[in-house]
């Protein structure tokens, strides 16, 4: 089970990512537990597997319109599906990688796996609770989902 302090690491990482990489701060809400069913999956999802001292997954999921605006804000001119897949992977990778500042080097992260649509491909472990961190950025919403032993 994750602690409040551990979740705060991911909230801070998400806040820092949008302010720095997307050139505009996001409103990052309080994490909540998914009580029933599976967490939300949007059109594009970047997923990182966590191994080592902690095990589980971290994923960032967002819509095409949000990723389009993010790419534009980053100065990217090629607003392709490939770059949207790249972006969700990079967001998940950056926030998870930054978490090592608090979790230490034994918090081992994989390269990103990216899923466009096909929510059935995102599998969260049944025995671990998923926390959703809601992200509101401009008029868009996205989620960071943290599911760690």
């Amino acid at each position: 089970m994750m602690t409040k302090v551990e979740l705060e690491t991911f909230v801070e990482g998400t806040t820092h990512y949008f302010a720095t990489a997307a050139n505009q701060p996001a409103s990052v809400g309080s994490p909540y537990i998914v009580q029933e069913g599976k967490p939300t999956i949007q059109e594009f999802t970047g997923m990182i597997s966590i191994a080592g001292k902690r095990r589980g997954i971290v994923y960032f999921t967002a819509s095409r319109p949000m990723l389009t605006v993010m790419l534009m804000r980053m100065g990217e001119t090629e607003l392709t599906q490939e770059n949207m897949c790249d972006l969700v992977g990079e967001v998940a990778n950056t926030i998870s990688g930054n978490a090592r500042r608090d979790f230490g080097k034994d918090f081992m992260i994989s390269v990103p796996t990216v899923v466009a649509g096909e929510p059935e491909k995102i599998v969260t472990p049944d025995n671990i609770r998923s926390f959703v961190i809601p992200i509101n950025w401009r008029s868009h919403s996205a989620q960071l989902v943290v599911c760690l032993e």
């Binding site: 990778n93 990688g97 930054n98 090592r100 500042r101 080097k105 918090f107 992260i109």
Partner: peptide, 9 residues
């Protein structure tokens, strides 16, 4: 240039 922000890395 990496997201891995721990000192050990």
């Amino acid at each position: 240039i990496s997201a891995l922000s721990d000192k050990a890395t």
